[in-house]
Simulated scan of single mutants.
Amino acid sequence: MPKQDHGGPVPIEAGGRTVEITSPEKVMFPGEPEAPGRAAGRPFTKLDLARYYAAVEEPLMRTVRDRPTLLQRFPNGVTGKSFFQKRIPDSAPDWLETTTVSTINGTESRAIVMADLAHVLWVVNQGVLGFHPWPYRASAPDDVDELRLDLDPSPGTTFDMVREAAHHVRDFLTEVGITAFPKTTGNRGLHLYVRVEPGWDSFGTRQAAIAVARTMQERHPDLITGEWWKQDRGERIFVDFNQNAPHKTVFGAWCVRSRVGAQCSTPFRWDELDAIHPDELTLATVPARVAADGDPWAAIDDAPQSIEPLVARYRADLERGIPDAPWPPVYPKMPDEARRVHPSRARADG
């Protein structure tokens, strides 16, 4: 098969640098197929992707600037194979900012730091479709400044149920004096972000997320669950507290998801919650939203918040004899954690 001609490099000015987008006409997203009541979506190229990020530069950089970022590469577009690039190669340009990140087990790697739009465009040119920023700034690695509440729909649930769960979580956070900022995931769930004041680490934010999950399950047991074991969740919305565990990353705000329709993980205002449709928020439609309405997260950095009210609930549970929630299997056993097996198996093993 002859090699396809994807066109000559296209230079884009960004961050005081010129970044060349090679193979600009390479199709990264084929577009949604035609379906009853829906016309086929148009394909999007690598150049389209680069221009999208240039169009949302200001709100994007507000969320990702100075953050170490895990990259998910799709060299042949969204329909091809992908891999997570955990280490920036030595062949990267010398202006690229990087930092060392470490897993809880001590494994280190060299990660990109999203210093400006030029860094974003450099990774786009590598075929990156997924940005997964760490919840701290490279300039302050000991201060986790984002509590990330992942409302994860279980099989059998609907997006209306996710919306309802988000309303309840917001109401609870408001009770304890905490403001959250919502975004779509680019798929079926929602993420709620809280900007956290300095002095907290990922153990603290995970404990806060556990407190939210447990409180929501207590108040709305038919709708929301904090059960780690999938067989116990039922058709409920899972508050995935372990997305806040050390070295965990979450799909970034304003980033384009690896879906054929190029859906974006899009911040929105709370008064839009009942009308927002994630599938309609795409590389083609989101820039116009930003141009018309501005950044819904413009105030996220204005007042970093204490998560002490949530962590206090977690600590009170420990004092009552309720152990830490289960950790993912790749993590070492934690001091306050019960046996990391499903309770039914623990009883059987006796």
Rank of each mutant, 00 (worst) to 15 (best):
L147N: 05
R163A: 08
A312S: 14
D152T: 04
K3A: 09
I178A: 08
T100M: 10
C255F: 11
N76T: 12
R259F: 05
R214T: 12
L60P: 01
D116Q: 09
F84D: 09
W229R: 01
I178H: 06
R315M: 09
W200P: 00
H168N: 04
G234P: 11
T45P: 06
D324V: 04
L151A: 07
E20F: 12
K183T: 05
L318H: 13
F44D: 02
H342G: 12
D336A: 14
T225N: 10
V10R: 08
R289Y: 13
R148E: 10
I307K: 10
V128L: 05
T157W: 06
K183D: 05
D336F: 13
H119E: 06
G41R: 01
T103A: 09
I12D: 08
V212F: 04
R206M: 14
R219T: 07
W134R: 02
D301S: 11
M216N: 04
V128K: 07
P332H: 12
D293I: 00
T69E: 11
R87H: 15
P328T: 07
G7H: 09
I112A: 15
M161E: 15
I112R: 06
T22Y: 02
E280I: 01
W297I: 00
P30N: 07
E337Q: 15
P133M: 00
